[in-house]
C-alpha cells in the first residue's frame, strides 16, 4: 500500500526557514516502522533527508521525533499506530533548536540531566560483596531506570516550553532514580538541586510527559514522589 510522509525539512546551509516535503512510499503492511519509511525515503529518494537513529527497537533513544503532533520514537511507532490513510506529519522534537531536518540540538537536555548528579554517591567503604538491597527496593528504581534519554518527555512539557530554565521531567526522573536508591548517600546535596522553582516545583502535573514516554514510564508519579520527599524534608 502507498502511504505519504509529510516531513518537515530544514537545511541551514540553504533554507531560511523550515518547510514540508511529501514522500509517497510503498509499505508492505501496517507493521512497518516509521523509521523504516524514513529509511526508504532517504535510501531510495533523497539522501539529504537527515535524522538520528541507531538500535531501531526502542532501547537507544536516538530517534525521538514528532509524529502527527505527538512525541514518539520513529522505531517503536508502527504504521498501524497512526492514521496512515492521511499524510503522516513528521517533525523534529518541539522547542529545541533544529540542526538539520529532524536532528535537534540536545545539548541543553544533556546539561540538565548532568545537573542532577546522575550517579550513585556512597560514602561508606565498599564491602567485599554487593551492598544488599531488597528486591522490593530494587524494583522501586526499575521503572525510572528504564529511561533512554530520548527527550520525548521534556520536549512535550508545557512548563519546559514556557520556562527555559526548568530542569524538565527527564532530569527529575533521573533525580528520583538516585534519591530513592537505598544505597545512595547524597541526601540533601542531591535534593537541593531539584528543590528550586526551576526544579521539581515547576512541574504542574500536566502529564504530557507520561503520554509522550515511549517506555511507558509514569514520570509524573515519580516527580510527585520526589516532591513528597522535598516536602517531608521541610517539615
Amino acid at each position: 500500500m502507498k502511504v505519504i510522509l509529510r516531513i518537515q525539512r530544514y537545511n541551514p546551509e540553504k533554507d531560511t526557514e523550515p518547510y514540508y516535503q511529501e514522500f509517497t512510499l510503498e509499505a508492505g503492511d501496517d507493521k512497518v516502522r516509521i523509521l523504516d519509511l524514513l529509511h526508504e525515503a532517504k535510501w531510495k529518494y533523497d539522501g539529504t533527508l537527515t535524522f538520528r537513529r541507531s538500535c531501531a527497537h526502542g532501547v537507544c533513544g536516538s530517534d525521538g521525533i514528532r509524529i502527527n503532533g505527538r512525541n514518539r520514537l520513529a522505531c517503536s511507532t508502527l504504521l498501524r499506530d497512526v492514521n496512515y490513510r492521511k499524510p503522516i506529519v513528521i517533525e523534529p522534537l518541539p522547542s529545541t533548536a533544529i540542526i538539520k531536518d529532524l536532528v535537534v540540538d540536545m545539548s541543553d537536555f544533556y546539561k540538565k540531566y548532568e545537573a542532577v548528579k546522575p550517579y550513585l554517591v556512597n560514602n561508606s567503604p565498599p564491602p567485599e560483596h554487593e551492598r544488599l538491597q531488597s528486591n522490593e527496593d530494587a524494583e522501586k528504581l526499575f521503572e525510572s531506570a528504564k529511561c533512554i534519554l530520548c527527550a520525548c518527555c521534556t520536549t512535550s512539557c508545557p512548563s519546559s516550553w514556557s520556562d527555559q530554565n526548568y530542569i524538565g521531567p527527564a532530569a527529575l526522573l533521573k533525580a528520583y532514580r538516585f534519591a530513592f536508591d537505598t544505597r545512595d548517600d547524597a541526601g540533601d546535596e542531591r535534593l537541593d538541586v531539584v528543590d528550586t522553582p526551576d526544579g521539581a516545583w515547576r512541574c504542574h502535573t500536566i502529564f504530557n510527559c507520561v503520554e509522550a514516554c515511549p517506555k511507558e514510564i509514569n514520570i509524573t508519579w515519580h516527580i510527585s514522589q520526589l516532591k513528597k520527599r522535598l516536602a517531608q524534608r521541610e517539615m
Binding site: 550513585l120 565498599p126 544488599l132 538491597q133
Partner: peptide
C-alpha cells in the same frame, strides 16, 4: 561486585543479593 558498587540496579534474591 564492582558494577553493583558503582550503582548498577540489579534484580535481587530474597536475601538482597
Amino acid at each position: 561486585i564492582e558494577l553493583e558498587h558503582m550503582g548498577m540496579p540489579f534484580s535481587r534474591t530474597p536475601e538482597g543479593k
